[in-house]
């Protein structure tokens, strides 16, 4: 029955106009980023390394390639995409409550737990499709428009260059991780959705929570950094970047300082982030199921 229910939920999602808002919005945003980088990408890249221009030749042209554009796109959009996820997931229960269809669903021989799980799985599949869409536009289209070369990543304290042949597998894992991260948002939005009878409330609440967490994360004060920040899901949602942080050979020795191809600097940190994100999903879904099972459907 679960798969029938899941198919029904996917069918409903596919039939709703708002589903395609996210795809349209992503296309527009990615296109704008591509346009901006096509026009002024050189300057932008130069800005990241302006302090180094005296010491090094900055290969701006090579740095501005499809892989870089995709990283830039993910860096910019994965912070904002939760809104698009909340738009669908936050509506899952409350939208049906608002429309009145929820009372028809509950009156059918299906357990409420299954309803939540089916709706959650449908949201996750939606996320996968959204990220797939992002990969097509952000990665493959960028590669066509900008060409491919080594990937340059500017971090706070260092820059990383990954060989072109050492990138695709990292993107694959990064997109998988992003799915996990956004699945937390879906669980969060569904949780709020259970408590509400209109769709705006949970969408706004879930988005607000994400914004507040992101702000706390950006406030680099010890009060938060040592207490809350390490446990925020938004902190761990950045884990996708961990796949782009390679190991380097020790600073002394034959290949000292060079990036080790195919390596990840600290995979255990990514495992830990994944575990924390899974924990959040279980927590949010647990609360959602608990509340939904005892909820009186009055709409």
């Amino acid at each position: 029955m679960f798969f029938t229910l899941l198919k029904i939920e996917l069918f409903k999602i596919s039939k709703r106009p708002r589903t395609y808002i996210a795809f349209g919005a992503l296309a527009v945003l990615i296109f704008l980023i591509q346009l901006a980088l096509k026009a002024n990408g050189d300057e932008f890249v130069g800005l990241l390394l302006s302090a180094q221009e005296d010491t090094f030749e900055i290969p701006r042209k090579e740095m501005l390639n499809g892989y870089f554009v995709c990283f830039f796109v993910l860096n910019m959009l994965l912070i904002h995409i939760p809104l698009l996820v909340a738009l669908i997931a936050g509506d899952q229960i409350s939208g049906e409550a608002g429309m009145g269809t929820l009372r028809f669903m509950i009156g059918k021989p299906i357990s409420r737990t299954q309803i939540i799980l089916a709706k959650y799985c449908a949201s996750v599949i939606y996320i996968v499709l959204m990220l797939f869409w992002m990969a097509i536009l952000g990665l493959f289209l960028s590669n066509i428009l900008f060409g491919t070369s080594d990937l340059f990543i500017g971090r706070q304290f260092d820059v990383i260059v990954l060989e072109a042949s050492d990138i695709m597998w990292r993107y694959l894992l990064a997109f998988l991780f992003a799915t996990l991260g956004l699945s937390v948002i879906a669980a969060l939005a569904i949780m709020f959705s259970v408590f509400s009878d209109n769709s705006i409330g949970p969408i706004v609440t879930a988005t607000t929570v994400v914004i507040v967490c992101t702000i706390i994360q950006q406030l680099t004060v010890p009060l938060f950094e040592n207490t809350i920040t390490p446990w925020l899901f938004t902190t761990h949602m950045l884990g996708w970047k961990g796949f782009f942080y390679p190991e380097t050979y020790q600073m002394v020795g034959e290949n000292s300082g060079a990036v080790i191809k195919g390596s990840i600097e600290n995979i255990s940190a990514i495992y830990k982030s994944s575990a924390i994100l899974f924990g959040y999903i279980l927590l949010f879904l647990g609360i959602a199921i608990w509340q939904f099972r005892k909820k009186d459907i009055l709409t």
Partner: peptide
Amino acid sequence: KGYKLPKGITFDYDNGA
């Protein structure tokens, strides 16, 4: 020469390294 970018721009993932 020294290199440093603002945290708000890079939005790094803290992988504990």
